[in-house]
Design a protein around this nucleic acid. Sequence first.
DNA 1: ATTCATACTGTAATTATATACAGTATTAAA
DNA 2: TTTAATACTGTATATAATTACAGTATGAAT
Lengths: 200, 200
Amino acid sequence: MNNLTSRQKEIFEFIKSKISKEGYPPTRMEISNYFGFKSPNAAEDHLKALKKKGFIEILSGTSRGISLNENLLDHIPVIGLVSAGSPMLAEENIEKKIPALPISTHGVDYYLRVKGDSMIDVGIFENDLIAVNKDIKIKKNSIVIARLDNDVTVKTLKELSDNKVVLRAENKNYEDIVIDPNKVSLNFEGTCVGLIRNIS
Amino acid sequence: MNNLTSRQKEIFEFIKSKISKEGYPPTRMEISNYFGFKSPNAAEDHLKALKKKGFIEILSGTSRGISLNENLLDHIPVIGLVSAGSPMLAEENIEKKIPALPISTHGVDYYLRVKGDSMIDVGIFENDLIAVNKDIKIKKNSIVIARLDNDVTVKTLKELSDNKVVLRAENKNYEDIVIDPNKVSLNFEGTCVGLIRNIS
DNA sequence: ATTCATACTGTAATTATATACAGTATTAAA
DNA sequence: TTTAATACTGTATATAATTACAGTATGAAT
């Protein structure tokens, strides 16, 4: 969604929402009415721009003949290995994108591929994808995604106060991580709200 | 899909496939062409019948203004508790339907809600949904969905021969289930190819 | 300095589409 | 046995929709 102008983004979003709400794409007129255009040609121009940029296909002579070029639909990034220092959603960390799945009662901002065995006692295994929500308030006893000195880790949050944070690996072989947040750089990236595993 | 005639079923299926392939519903003409009708009114009549029976909505004056009332487009059933004796996919066992998710490299025929703790050592917990493929050949060491005397169970298949089958619960507290398939009714419903967990 | 992309207004024509009306034939229900 | 539902053909028309052409204005790129 990068080379789109903000107006084009709006048009594209409108088309998507029309499809998901009504079940079919809008006409030029419907687009124009929604945005207050006085000419259907304004919509036509936008559609051509979206087509040129590869976001939609237009079937000529076909009413509502707009099809979205999938793969940009409602796709949510899967984060693989996180490069030190880079923001979670940085391009370099995105392994692929998969559709928004109704796996969780909460929204999912991204999926994170699990490394290591530190959470096996709660059934989170290496290579599982955990669904992460960025906005839920970080709470005691939730499984959180934390960034400790640029190292991204998944742990259960057992204590959270101004001068003491305890992260627990759910694996008997690991010890609790006790942190003084004033001394160490600690950020919470999100809360784990779901899990996906591929068994091959 | 019960009170529909077979012809109406065909029309309905055609509309569904058009929507999923093209991204928008067909026109009366497109329906007529596909089925070889010589008049668009044949399609119109069918649409009215489908509307009357509650399968679609028709928006008057709107091109391609057909919306499906079923939202089981590419939806895959989630199987909850399985009633004794009933086939897996029997209506009574279907908890809900969710979209086809690209969680697995294999196809998914249905999701099965896990009961009990017999597989916790491989990270399968109570209430998880396991993705089941019915067609993959049952193999040793896969996690299988077996029906033992009408009881549906998820276990690892450790041995499979003509006169001995061993099903292992992946939980130290349970013993292997050793079966003589000639003496006991045993069917394999499928192989576990993935897992979904909602963490709330 | 000029071309190009963006973001529109305004008009208009062709064609795509919905949909009514008038029929015919078959089958199932009252 | 009459009615209603199903499954169409055939014709017709109003209107929905695409889409081209001719403009205007702005800002960014070459």
